[in-house]
């Protein structure tokens, strides 16, 4: 998974966009370029983007984390965005990638949940059903070459069954005890695996929350498109809850001891 959502689904091109600033100087033009290129232009690029989402299984359910930043290229544009959302009574989804596409996906899911509710047939959507629905939507859109530019984690618990799975703009899906999207796939996933693999059935909620917090901190240190303000979603048998935004404790003293670049010469 490429950390830069702007590069997803295409080769990285340093000549073209060395500093990841594409939204401002390179807005896509919808005007016809010549007599042959009329028609709907639907190949798109993400504009306002969210970075990593992390999630792990623990003894009693699922924990998911994402920060509150929505970036506009390299600009930290919106700093109070909720990237974790509840869907129905048993599920949370968390998204990286294009935030307007994510809002559209939320409205799709809201319509779906209302439709299921109004049928009053005694069935409720669980995380499995929501993930399957999302997968079909995402794969369907990629097949129309009109993707929803996101990578999404779906976590939940229903009838005592924990569920955690991934789906992205290509319709690729998978499931595991630890999942991470975006830059988190490189930096947090190895840490998560070391902490969780083989222990998903014994970890307590407190231990799991500590693991996620540590990973969010490492991501904030290393991912330039991240923020030290994040939320945690907890899904257990008692339901879904999404925390208020928390601040990450960070320490930058080590920077004082670094020598040899920038203005500091000795």
């Amino acid at each position: 998974m490429d950390h830069f959502p702007g590069n997803w689904g295409r080769l990285r091109n340093d000549d073209y966009d060395a500093y990841g600033t594409f939204p401002i100087p390179h807005r896509p033009s919808n005007a016809p370029k010549d007599t042959f290129s009329e028609g709907v232009q639907r190949t798109q690029q993400p504009i306002v983007t969210g970075t990593s989402v992390l999630a792990i299984k623990f003894k009693d359910g699922i924990l998911m984390a994402a920060d509150n930043l929505a970036s506009y290229g390299s600009l930290a544009r919106f700093k109070d965005v909720q990237r974790l959302r509840p869907v129905g009574d048993y599920t949370v989804i968390g998204a990286g990638g294009d935030m307007s596409d994510f809002q559209y996906i939320q409205s799709l899911l809201d319509d779906l949940v209302v439709e299921e509710f109004t049928s009053q047939d005694g069935h409720n959507l669980g995380p499995k059903e929501i993930h399957e629905y999302l997968s079909q939507v995402m794969y369907g859109r990629r097949t129309k070459i009109n993707p929803l530019w996101n990578s999404i984690l779906v976590g939940g618990l229903k009838d005592g069954q924990r569920f955690l799975a991934y789906v992205d703009l290509l319709g690729t899906t998978y499931s595991a005890d630890t999942l991470a999207t975006g830059y988190g796939a490189y930096i947090a996933q190895p840490l998560l695996r070391r902490a969780v693999e083989g222990r998903a059935d014994t970890l307590t909620e407190e231990e799991a929350a500590k693991i996620l917090e540590d990973c969010m901190r490492v991501l904030f240190y290393r991912d330039a498109r991240s923020l030290n303000k994040y939320q945690i979603a907890t899904i257990t048998a008692s339901g879904v809850s999404i925390s208020d935004s928390k601040a990450l404790e960070t320490s930058w003293e080590f920077a004082e001891g670094i020598r040899g670049y920038g203005a500091q010469t000795q």
Binding site: S107, D110, D111, V114, E115, T118
Partner: peptide, 13 residues
């Protein structure tokens, strides 16, 4: 009625 309610949600969120 469900259609009307759904359309309202889609239009006005």
């Amino acid at each position: 009625a469900r259609e009307e309610a759904g359309n309202h949600r889609d239009t006005y969120r």
